[in-house]
């Protein structure tokens, strides 16, 4: 299993290959799972404690369901590696980061400098999400 191209966590990337969500039953002792756009991230919530890595697959960059899956997992307190894999492009990186992804495994490697710029796109943000950034409205009324 190749390492993710961008890894924004302090620890090291999970080296286990994720098992498919469909094969992840109650009895599973897997620590890494992959979910597809149509899978319900909420059904993973009872198992978050055992998971070290959740790989959210983007078969096509235009399918935005993975952004909701990511936020739902973070909102539920998941603190493990959250990996975006598949059709992950430069221009989606900052949104993915804001939705809680901290590991990126694009199927086609991205330009390192362009990615660095993309992660730093916004000095400030309008929404409160799961990335712990202080939204503009809070700064206005701080």
């Amino acid at each position: 299993m190749a390492n993710p191209q961008f890894y924004l966590r302090e620890d090291t990337p999970c080296s286990d290959a994720p098992i498919a969500f469909a094969d992840f039953g109650d009895a599973s002792n897997a620590i890494a799972v992959r979910i597809e756009p149509g899978d319900d991230a909420r059904s993973l919530l009872p198992h978050l404690g055992q998971l070290a890595m959740i790989d959210i697959s983007f078969p096509a960059f235009g399918d935005g369901r993975g952004y909701s899956s990511a936020r739902i997992l973070r909102e539920a307190g998941y603190e493990g590696e959250l990996r975006a894999s598949g059709d992950v492009l430069i221009d989606q990186l900052s949104n993915m980061r804001r939705c809680g992804f901290d590991s990126f495994a694009p199927s086609t490697p991205l330009d390192e400098n362009a990615a660095k710029t993309a992660f730093a796109t916004w000095d400030d943000v309008y929404q409160k999400t799961v990335d712990a950034r202080t939204p503009i409205w809070a700064k206005r009324h701080g």
Binding site: G62, Y67, M96, R98
Partner: peptide
């Protein structure tokens, strides 16, 4: 308008 501008979750509806 502000909430929906560059909304990270809802840019690929």
């Amino acid at each position: 308008r502000q909430w929906s501008s560059f909304h990270p979750e809802f840019s690929y509806l």
